[in-house]
Structures are given as structure tokens and as C-alpha cells.
Design a protein around this nucleic acid. Structure first.
Lengths: 198, 198
DNA sequence: CCACAAAAGCTAATACCATTAGTTTTGAAA
DNA sequence: TTTCAAAACTAATGGTATTAGCTTTTGTGG
């Protein structure tokens, strides 16, 4: 069909970059040249697929978030029959586990400031799906906090999950003790706190 | 005493870098050459004071954390007479305010992985002071959670504060609503959750 | 007042990286 | 077999951190 069939695809570039960033353990230590070599291609060729390295990293972040949300959905599916509190705790555990499994790309995804009006109307179905996932989570939270504060309560839950994982990844919680337990107990305390607040 | 008195000091380099990083709004867009020019000096001269740019950024982070802890202490001083819950809420507000006022250096300080055994025994009094500050905070938390879980409860508090601020800075909480209120309500819920857990 | 030594700064060079311009290769279709 | 457009390549540009080696500065001791 096409003269000179492509040797790489956007998807393969993104997934390879994603893997290499995580393996290298550093966010910025992936020269385009090294990525290109891994793909069996020279560096300038990649600029046919991405306008800049920043745009590539943006795609990596989108990929990371899609994996994270997918993981959360799987967890929810596995706990369908349980009470909202148990479901939320399960989600929280899955969230943290994801952060531990992919600390570098996780951090990258949550610390890159995406230039707002940059991508005109790229709602991208990705974002729509993630929005729906969050609504689903909010519905669960709502059953604990009551509907009036469900968005507020969801935000706090996201904050405590993300904050804990980030502090752990950056080794800012090292004073001994069981961090697994600290995480679960904290999430439980947070949700319990919303229960008693008509 | 010394022939040829220095035109810059470590302290001035760090504080200038700190200010420029925040003003530029980007963590890595501060070439050593630009920092040097601002200091009225050429780039290589700075290597007399720091072994590498990474080491300089490390010093910037230490400076950021010292300001943050100082701020928290000021808040505590101003709320001496109040109940533990009010003191902790005040601290939480101050923490978030600091993050908003210095988002770039804040993020940098909390996302730079410091190579553990790098600096041999640099306990540096800075760290000791911050450790003492955290103990003071833990004592307050203890009066709500009970002593048994005070470290766990403190960790959760740090997580919710840091997580919320980080999500805000990276614009990952944008769905309208009052974020000021969401933050305060979430922190309150969290602490309330620890109260009922003998 | 003068010379000197060492601290501090400077110039020049190296190696690396992102990105661009222009050229070459490839394979399907005519 | 010739053509052509996509895709990849080579070569160059401009910017960066960092190093090596030289020059300047100035307090101090003669």
C-alpha cells in the first residue's frame, strides 16, 4: 500500500520509551538517540511521529494514566459484590501497588504540567473514559460521604493516595514502621471521617 | 585573611537559583550560564562552590524544605493556645499556602530522589531541626489519634496535605468547586476519622 | 612601597543532546 | 522497468554541563 513501509509506529515508540524510562530509573536520562537505537532506527526518524521530545513524554504520560485507570477498573470488577468501603479500600491498595510497580513513569505522569490549551480539543476518548472512571469512583465515595460532599471527598481520597505514594517513592517516609499498614489505616480513617458527617 | 575575596557565596548562589527556578516556572530550564550571569560571574566559576548542577539543586531543595518547616513553626507559634485539632488544621493551611506560593521549588523538593548514602553523614542540623519539628507535629497528632498510632496518623496527614497540593499544582483537580473548602474538609475528615479509633 | 602566592575567576575546549535541512533509500503501482 | 512519495538517513546547528589550564586579583610579608 504505502511506499517504504514504516519500521516503527507511534504506539511502539511510546511503549518502548515507557519501558526504558522505568528501567533507567530516571525521567530525563533517556536520550532520543538511545530510544531510537532500541527501536532499530536513527534519532531524527522519530520526529516523524512526534513534534518534540516533550510531546513524546506527554504520550508516555497518557499511556501511564490509561494503565492506572485500567488497573483500578480491574480491581473494581473483582470487588463488585462488596460494600463501598471495601471497594474503595481495594482501589486504594491497587493505586498504591501501581505506583510501586512503576514509580518513575508514575511520578512523571503526575508531575508533568500539561500546557492547558495546548492540544485544542483532544478529548481523545482516553480522557472521556477516565472521566467516567472517576465518576464511578465518586459514586462509591458518595455512598459514604453522602452526595453533597462526594466530589470533595473524592478529591481528598485521591490526595491521600497520591500523596502517600509520592512520599514513599521519594523516600520521605523513612522512619521505620509498617508502611503498608500506615497506608491502609490512613485511608480507612479518612473514609471513616466522612461517614459521621451528615 | 584570604587573597582575592570571593564575589559570590554558596548561600547567594542557592538563593538566587531558588528565586530564578521559581520565576522561570520550570525546574530544569535554568542553565548554569544564566544563573552565573545573574550573579555577575561566568559559568565555570560556580563549579568552585558546587561539584555539579545536581548538587546545587540538592542545596536548593534543602533550602526549600527549611523555609517550609520554618513556615510551619511560625504557624504553630501563632496558634499555641488553641486545641490540637485547630493547630493541625492551621498547619495544614500553612502547608498548602506554601505550596501555592512556591509551586516550582516545592515540587522540585518533593520529587528529587536524593541518593541515599550519597552524603556520608551530613546530618547538618537542618535535618535535625526538621526531625524535631516533625516530632512536635506528631505530638499534636497523638492527642487526636492516641499515642499508639501517632506516627501512622502523622504519615497520613502528610500524605493528604502533600497529595492535595501536588494535584492542585499539576492541575489534576480541575472540575470546578471550591478547592479551599475541599482541602479543609478533607483534612478535617481525616483527623475526625482518627478520633473515633481508640 | 613592592613582590608574591594562592584564591578566584576566566577562556577555550570537550562531549552530549535535541532538533532541523537536505539527501537517499525503498517498494508498490504504472 | 520507471516513477514517486513515504520514510529513514547523514550532516549540521545551537545549546548544555563540565573540565583543563591560564590569568587576574589582592591581602600579606618583606
Amino acid at each position: 500500500m504505502s511506499p517504504y513501509p514504516a519500521q516503527v509506529t507511534q504506539e511502539r515508540i511510546v511503549e518502548t520509551a515507557w519501558r526504558m524510562i522505568e528501567e533507567d530509573g530516571s525521567m530525563e536520562n533517556l536520550p532520543v538517540s538511545r530510544l531510537a537505537k532500541e527501536l532499530g532506527v536513527k534519532a531524527p526518524s522519530l520526529y516523524r511521529y512526534f513534534a518534540s521530545k516533550a510531546e513524546l513524554l506527554q504520550a508516555v504520560n497518557t499511556y501511564t494514566l490509561s494503565l492506572l485507570f485500567e488497573e483500578m477498573n480491574i480491581v473494581l470488577e473483582g470487588h463488585r459484590q462488596q460494600a463501598p468501603l471495601e471497594q474503595l479500600i481495594a482501589v486504594a491498595k491497587g493505586f498504591r501497588q501501581f505506583g510501586h510497580q512503576h514509580p518513575v513513569v508514575y511520578t512523571l505522569a503526575f508531575t508533568t504540567i500539561e500546557p492547558d490549551a495546548n492540544n485544542g480539543g483532544q478529548d481523545s476518548a482516553e480522557k472521556n473514559q477516565q472521566f467516567a472512571d472517576l465518576l464511578r469512583l465518586q459514586a462509591l465515595v458518595s455512598e459514604i460521604s453522602g452526595g453533597t460532599h462526594s466530589l470533595t471527598a473524592l478529591r481528598g481520597l485521591l490526595a491521600i493516595m497520591h500523596g502517600f505514594v509520592m512520599l514513599e517513592i521519594n523516600q520521605q517516609l523513612r522512619r521505620g514502621g509498617d508502611l503498608d499498614e500506615a497506608y491502609e489505616k490512613s485511608v480507612e480513617a479518612y473514609l471513616r471521617g466522612w461517614q459521621n458527617s451528615t
